[in-house]
């Protein structure tokens, strides 16, 4: 037993020394299983530039970031283990990542950032169409598009983005919009929270559907809005609705703070909870021309309109 203990101590010290030397000499790389053996992950940053791109199509398993810059061409940088395929024809740039068959192995001791595709768009240009399917997060900042179709299994974050037509987002993702404008919004998610702040969707009918998630909308403008969550709360604060708002949750509370209590009609139905409109226990309220209609339904939760 004593010999085992002594051997253990010696091996531990030797191991710690070798591990330290490995880290000191930057040997703490990810390994990737490829072609029947472990190889060191190539995480170097690769660049590519493209002229006169109007449409962007991305199919990837990586994090995608799209942001403006002062240059005149579309610039793509990629940090990750896969290789990217680029196809640039008819003003369309298609980016596909060739996911390697295998798995990445690391000891979790080094600095291992997720694979990221960063697309730099000239700040003066307006892209026509963006189609992006990825299993990673998507982040778009300070850009203008005619159309955006996003599908992601991770978070989608748009900040200061203008879309001429409908903004479409789907997948299993959380959605966060800040200062975004589009004709309308279509969001359909199996599992995701939605947070929208200071945004405008005033030309069409918007829909936000989630099977499991909370919806929080603040200081935003909509023409028509339909909100559905199978399991989550609805928090709606200071929204401007020009025509109608329908909010339904199967299991959750609905809290609404309206900007104005004039020229509107409110229906609030809760199967297993109480409804309160402007401090009164009632499920119906109307005032003036009833230009705007609000309808709130909760199968299991309270509805409070202030």
């Amino acid at each position: 037993m004593k010999k085992t203990l002594i051997s253990g101590i010696i091996l531990t010290i030797l191991g710690a020394v070798l591990l330290g030397l490995g880290i000191l000499h930057h040997g703490d790389h990810n390994l990737i299983w490829h072609d029947g053996g472990f190889k060191i992950e190539d995480a170097s940053i690769k660049h590519a530039t493209f002229k006169e791109v109007h449409n962007l199509k991305i199919n990837a398993d990586d994090e995608v970031q799209i942001k403006p810059y002062a240059g005149s061409q579309i610039k793509v940088t990629y940090r990750g283990t896969n290789t990217l395929d680029y196809q640039a024809t008819d003003h369309q740039l298609s980016i596909n990542d060739n996911s390697r068959n295998g798995f990445t192995f690391n000891l979790g001791l080094g600095n291992f950032a997720p694979s990221t595709i960063t697309i730099y768009v000239p700040s003066t240009s307006k892209l026509n169409k963006l189609i992006c399917n990825t299993s990673g997060t998507v982040s778009i900042t300070d850009l203008n598009f005619n159309q955006i179709h996003l599908s992601s299994n991770e978070d989608v974050d748009l900040h200061k983005v203008n879309v001429k037509d409908e903004l479409q987002v789907s997948g299993y993702s959380d959605l966060e919009l800040r200062q975004v404008s589009a004709a309308s919004l279509a969001y359909d998610s199996s599992d995701g929270d939605v947070t929208i702040n200071d945004s405008k969707f005033i030309k069409g009918s918007s829909k936000i559907l989630t099977s499991d998630g909370d919806l929080e909308l603040n200081d935003s403008d909509f023409k028509q809005l339909k909100l559905v969550s199978d399991d989550g709360d609805l928090n709606l604060n200071r929204l401007s609705i020009s025509e109608s708002l329908t909010g339904r949750t199967s299991d959750g509370d609905i809290h609404t703070t309206l900007k104005d209590s004039r020229n509107l009609a409110i229906n609030a139905d809760s199967d297993d909870g109480h409804a309160k409109i402007f401090g009164k226990n009632t499920n119906y309220y109307h005032q003036g021309s009833q230009k705007t209609h609000y309808s709130f339904t909760s199968s299991d939760g309270n509805i409070i309109v202030r």
């Binding site: 191991g15 070798l18 591990l19 030397l21 490995g22 000499h25 040997g27 060191i40 001791l109």
Partner: peptide, 9 residues
């Protein structure tokens, strides 16, 4: 050095 790192661990 990557070999040393993994052997050490």
């Amino acid at each position: 050095w990557t070999g040393i790192y993994y052997i050490g661990f």
